[in-house]
Design a protein around this nucleic acid. Structure first.
Lengths: 348, 348
DNA sequence: GTGAAAGCGCTAACAA
DNA sequence: TTGTTAGCGCTTTCAC
């Protein structure tokens, strides 16, 4: 039913290769021929079949975007930005959800590999070595993780965690807890490292709680632990956990920020809408999505491809960019001065 | 670099057509040959190229999912559910964002058409006639809208709106406002119709405010109008607007639910986390995503396709299902009894 | 049960 | 500037 290149050729009285050129190398065809072909194409509603084209050019003009959980509010802005940037460059985006399952990540990369020019791996839970391995099958840009030798887009959560701890120190807190994230998370590791250093430098004690599910439920689940630990402030792995924790503390009769200060990470839209409004480390998720797409497409345009170009210099290691995006502490209402001794929730 | 069917054929000493059969019609090949071929394939890391296969079978095993705004919290659960269901059936999903732009919707369908077996149109802003038109190019399932002759998955927001109004009537409210949604929204129209009827039936006066942007900002923007209108309760087009409205009313010194009751629609995750917790009409978004995928794939398996089957009975109108999913009112803390006269925010 | 051959829609040498 | 030819990776008749 849909018109093919042959239909257009027939209608405009030229060979199919001329039609092909009209679309993929217009400058190589006589202007008059071109307008005629274009008119016929328009007429028939012809659009080149990208899949057929990909078969020979080696470029699909598709990319894959693999995330742990589409419904986690951290990801949608990233997905939206990546998709927008990709489409702006005339690429379509496969989105896939792994449900936080490392094995699903690997499967997905393999399944998508033939249909895409590259894959964006967001906050992968796979091991670094596995990532390197799959990156030999299809170009990969990693988001939210550093993998040596691979292009990566990271957010400087280390700096963010430091800023958060210093903010808490400045409010007088000396007993602080870090609500860790999921096992295998690069972000969680970076936060831990930076928060520990900052706490140590400020003469504060940092209690590590975790690993935890990076969700509201995960945050609520540790409320009791937080209470028992006697800390006066908490830095959570992300906003969702922070919000869950605040709810949990509330249920235990502890007020935020009067009894306990809580800081999140990500600055999801939600963090502005809860009561109290959340103090959090804003991460540039949309920028990360755009940047990652640009890097992937850059990689792609460098790489030799296609039926003919195969086996050429495709193995050369070009300098692989690693980008670190800045974060910023946003102080809202969930942090406050350390409570006076005796006023804390564990006492009277 | 990636292994092709020919590599496998060479390695296992059979013709490529035998390898092909091993994957697409295993029962037609001798068990012994089959295991040998499979072993070689495994060995070489061979996976059939779906795009090449699609060229001849006419089935891409991809679907398109077109939404107005990925970052609108209403959509991610739907996207997640649809993607999960699709992948469960061995389909990959292109996700595209139109930024609420009807023209972008049309472009996207055309751009995706050749690469997918069908498209899911979520809350489309296009006209019905345009939807019918594009549905002739590629199978379409419409979500959140009724289009005659096309398969549709709807949520019964009419019933939901009625339940919400009745809930408010039961609390004594007689002056109620309906915060309308965006222009061209089927949901907005259904809500208006049902809410008007229910209000009339209950002897209440319904003030229509809108159309509005279906966002938090859109909700906040009408707070002043709501105050001036003197209503004691508001039914908002969606939760985001309801939450924005509550914020806006708060800024004007009006308390929810003491001064004004507010009901949302959708029951997004967020609605459980704000203060007050939102009373809202829960819509089964995940179920809608799954159902729509199932309907699309059903359609797909009915349709004759492929290079050979072309032009057969592809024009026949099979009975196109239209599914209406139930909604449910969830009463939380943003609704309460009508304030006693004199206590309302416009007075002392 | 397997191989030979044609061809899906398209691009890319090469020749004219 | 245009046409000819070969072929991307795969499936599917049709013989054998």
């Amino acid at each position: 039913m849909p018109a093919t290149i042959r239909d257009v050729a027939r209608a405009s009285g030229v060979h199919i290769s001329t039609v092909s050129r009209t679309f993929s190398a217009p400058h190589l065809v006589n202007p008059e021929t071109r307008v005629r072909v274009l008119a016929c194409a328009e007429d028939l509603g012809y659009r080149p079949n990208r899949a057929a084209r990909a078969l020979i050019t080696g470029r699909t003009h598709n990319i894959g975007l693999i995330v742990a959980d589409i419904a986690n509010p951290f990801f949608p802005p990233l997905i939206k930005a990546a998709e927008g940037q990709a489409r702006h460059r005339d690429y379509h985006v496969f989105v896939a959800d792994t449900n936080e399952d490392p094995a699903a990540e690997e499967d997905l990369v393999h399944a998508l590999a033939k249909q895409v020019d590259g894959v964006l791996l967001c906050s992968p839970r796979m091991s670094n070595s596995l990532i390197e391995q799959v990156s030999r099958e299809v170009p990969v840009v990693v988001i939210n993780r550093q993998v040596a030798g691979l292009p990566c887009v990271m957010m400087d959560v280390g700096q963010g965690a430091r800023a958060a701890i210093e903010h808490l120190l400045g409010l007088g807190h000396r007993r602080i807890a870090l609500l860790g994230g999921p096992r295998g998370s690069w972000t969680a590791r970076e936060m831990r490292r930076a928060a520990s250093a900052a706490a140590r430098g400020g003469g504060a004690e940092l209690t590590l709680l975790g690993p935890n599910q990076p969700t509201e439920t995960g945050g609520g689940a540790v409320a009791e632990q937080v209470r028992r630990s006697g800390v006066t402030a908490v830095l959570a792995y992300n906003d969702l956990m922070a919000i869950g924790l605040i709810e949990g503390l509330d249920a235990l009769g502890l007020r935020v920020p009067q009894d306990v200060s809580v800081v999140g990470v990500d600055d999801i839209a939600l963090s502005r809408l809860t009561r109290p409004k959340l103090t959090t480390v804003a991460t540039p998720t949309a920028a990360a999505g755009r940047t990652a797409v640009d890097m992937l497409l850059q990689l792609d345009s460098d790489a030799p491809r296609g039926a003919r170009g195969r086996g050429a210099a495709s193995g050369d290691r070009r300098t692989t960019a690693q980008v670190m995006l800045q974060t910023a502490l946003v102080v809202r209402d969930s942090t406050g001065p350390v409570p006076a001794p005796g006023r804390d929730g564990t006492g009277a």
